[in-house]
């Protein structure tokens, strides 16, 4: 671990076009402890299983899937809050997977990966003012103090459209939209290269959501940040993201340009997901319904498609042969034996 505090980014041109390159990352948690006397091995939850993805500089990648699909764990992995069981996480030119999460807090690259959390109210310490919250990473990661610190805090707040007179307030004295702005200002303060947005607008009313999404777009343009945007709201993902990754039970089932994926999904799960999203133009009669619940993520059959059993087009083959993520035209990928048969 480096003893240095502060952000010394490698020059982008030395790093190539890929900001983030994750290869075959898995995260398993032991469950159902059998007791240390019995000596039996634990069952494992396969929260994230063999996930590979890349993020180009300046790109916004959407991450969608239902609860329990592993997107939260993946977010924690790539933000280096938790350690992968296996696999590689390359950030720029550095391999980060070997750095233990507890040491990464003082790593020079800590400032370059920041998160905007789901519930801004919950992620701001209730005993911190807005200014304290925004100042915290600047103080910790860049060693700023005094007037420089105050100036940076005000700069971040201004960038995020947060009136300076609100900086002295505590989270419970702010509205939902204002809290979201504090959360974003805190994250962009250290000028990260990668910003992970974990359902940043899930708790907001639509009228406020619009302003926050537009703020994120303008920050992306003015600061050149790359986003990983996690959301269950496909409409929002479509508006904000260049590419989208669809996860199901810990695995990636489909990747591709956001509009292409949502307009003509290749994977039957994506089709069900898209069909289930309510639309202002009313329900479609032919809408595909995914019935049932996902299978258990505990010790899943390594040779069966995770979607097998709930899949409307699955066959016996899906129960004995795990479909690989295959490449398709237009920069798309899907993990389904029958992706070619998708209706256009």
């Amino acid at each position: 671990m480096s003893g240095q505090i502060g952000n010394q980014p490698t020059p982008p041109e030395a790093e190539g076009p890929l900001l983030l390159d994750i290869a075959e990352v898995s995260k398993r948690f032991p469950v159902g402890k059998t007791g240390w006397l019995s000596g039996k091995s634990h069952s494992l939850v396969h929260a994230v299983d063999d996930v590979s993805l890349t993020l180009a500089r300046g790109e916004t990648l959407g991450l969608v899937g239902e609860s329990g699909c592993g997107k939260s764990t993946l977010v924690r992995l790539l933000a280096r809050l938790t350690d992968p069981t296996s696999g590689s996480i390359r950030f720029g030119t550095r391999e980060l997977s070997a750095i233990p999460a507890k040491d990464f807090a003082r790593d020079p690259d800590r400032a370059r990966i920041q998160i905007v959390f789901q519930d801004a109210g919950e992620s701001i310490n209730p005993r911190f003012t807005a200014a304290d919250a925004i100042a915290d990473p600047l103080r910790q990661l860049q060693g700023l103090t005094g007037d420089t610190l105050r100036q940076k805090v005000e700069e971040a707040a201004t960038l995020c459209g947060l009136p300076l007179e609100l900086l002295a307030r505590f989270p419970h004295q702010l509205s939902g939209g204002q809290r979201a702005r504090v959360g974003i200002a805190r994250a962009i303060g250290p000028r990260p290269d990668l910003l992970v947005l974990d359902e940043p607008t899930a708790a907001l009313d639509v009228s406020v959501q619009v302003t926050i999404l537009q703020l994120l777009v303008s920050l992306r343009e003015s600061l050149g940040i790359s986003y990983v945007f996690v959301s269950h709201d496909l409409n929002v993902v479509r508006l904000l993201c260049d590419r989208v990754v669809v996860m199901y039970l810990g695995r990636i089932v489909e990747v591709g340009p956001a509009r292409a994926v949502f307009d003509a999904p290749l994977h039957p799960y994506t089709r069900g997901l898209v069909a289930a999203v309510p639309r202002l133009d009313g329900v479609r009669a032919d809408a595909l319904r995914l019935v049932g619940d996902p299978k258990s993520p505990i010790d899943p059959d390594p040779n069966a498609c995770r979607f097998h059993g709930r899949c409307p087009i699955g066959t016996d083959r899906c129960g004995v042969e795990m479909p690989e993520l295959r490449r398709f035209a237009g920069g798309r990928q899907a993990a389904c034996h029958y992706a070619e048969e998708a209706p256009a």
Binding site: I5, R76, A79, L81, A101, K102, A105, R106, R110, A111, I113, Q114, I115, F117, Q118, D119, E122, S123, I124, N125, P126, R127, F128, A133, D136, P137, Q140, L141, R186, A187
Partner: peptide, 24 residues
């Protein structure tokens, strides 16, 4: 959430414990 946020902000365990959790 604020515990994760503190880690992202560069606090190690003791910093999170004494600076974030203890005041609460």
């Amino acid at each position: 959430g604020f515990v994760d946020a503190a880690r992202i902000a560069g606090h190690r365990d003791m910093g999170v414990l004494l600076g974030q959790v203890a005041p609460n």
